[in-house]
């Protein structure tokens, strides 16, 4: 991978961010405070010349790790972000037929739906990637969601030549995915090149690190000695373990993540 490759990825993301800002209003961005959405925020600052001209939304389950909250409170004033914290409804209100970890994750879906309903967002930017998970591989860059927030993966709009779907009926919204074409390795290479700050939980301590950050009750660290970004990159170039191995909700049933996504999960 050369920096030329990273530059192409970055320039494409900037193009998508600007398309979203031009065509879809009101627009907000989900910030999980993980490595992907931090990189996305970084590129938004490049796209808009130091500004982030839309609210940055955290779907808060009060279950994030303390390092995550600390990172958030440091970055918000430093990057002059308009932060909007949405508290997600309790697990008791979720679909009880879902397996336990999937149910916990579904809280974020409901939080997001509440926020969109209340604030009338037409577009939500989020930092998912195609290589993360096979259902995400099927996503469009501009992906419409019905009034109930559901994703109809059987009836996705055609998307070609960067002519994106930018119009949806009232009440529906668009999920906009400017990082879809990046891989996990690309994100780390870019984070290193640009010096983007990260939550320290990604770096190994006592033989364990978080490869993917989620709520503390349903996300687990992996075995690793990678204590710097260089070491993470070296690890990724040889690993054959999937990125979301430490995410409980992906592994409860063959279709658990798919069920989450069709009902509106990120």
């Amino acid at each position: 991978m050369t920096s030329d490759h990273l530059r192409q990825l970055e320039q494409r993301t900037i193009y998508i961010l600007r398309e979203a800002y031009s065509r879809v209003k009101p627009l907000g961005m989900l910030w999980s405070i993980g490595k992907d959405s931090n990189a996305l925020l970084w590129m938004a600052r490049k796209a808009f010349f130091g500004n982030v001209p839309f609210p940055v939304i955290q779907l808060d389950t009060d279950m994030e790790l303390p390092e995550v909250y600390a990172f958030r409170d440091r970055i918000v004033p430093e990057w002059n972000l308009r932060l909007q914290v949405e508290h997600c409804p309790p697990e008791a209100e979720m679909d009880q037929t879902l397996p336990p970890a999937t149910r916990a994750a579904a809280r974020k879906t409901e939080g997001l739906k509440n926020l969109i309903r209340r604030q009338g967002y037409r577009g939500i930017l989020l930092g998912i990637r195609r290589d993360e998970q096979s259902t995400r591989a099927k996503e469009r860059v501009f992906s419409p969601r019905g009034i109930d927030g559901a994703w109809d993966f059987r009836d996705q709009p055609p998307e070609f030549w960067d002519q994106y779907k930018t119009d949806v009926p009232d009440g529906a919204h668009l999920r906009i995915h400017p990082l879809l074409h990046w891989t996990e390795l690309d994100i780390w290479l870019y984070t290193r090149q640009e010096g983007i700050p990260i939550v320290p939980l990604y770096l190994a301590r006592d033989g364990k690190r978080y490869r993917s950050l989620g709520e503390k009750n349903i996300t687990f660290p992996i075995d690793s000695n990678a204590s710097s970004i260089d070491e993470i990159i070296a690890e990724l170039e040889t690993t054959r373990m999937p990125e979301r191995a430490g995410r409980a909700m992906d592994h409860e049933a063959e279709d658990s993540f798919e069920r989450l996504r069709t009902t509106g999960y990120m």
């Binding site: 195609r130 259902t135 591989a137 099927k138 993966f153 996705q156």
Partner: peptide, 21 residues
């Protein structure tokens, strides 16, 4: 390998584009 979605496996056809590296 490609048929990530339950619905696809049942129909044994690929429903949508996907990316593989």
């Amino acid at each position: 390998v490609l048929d990530a979605l339950q619905a696809e496996r049942d129909q044994a056809i690929t429903i949508d584009t996907t990316r593989l590296w």
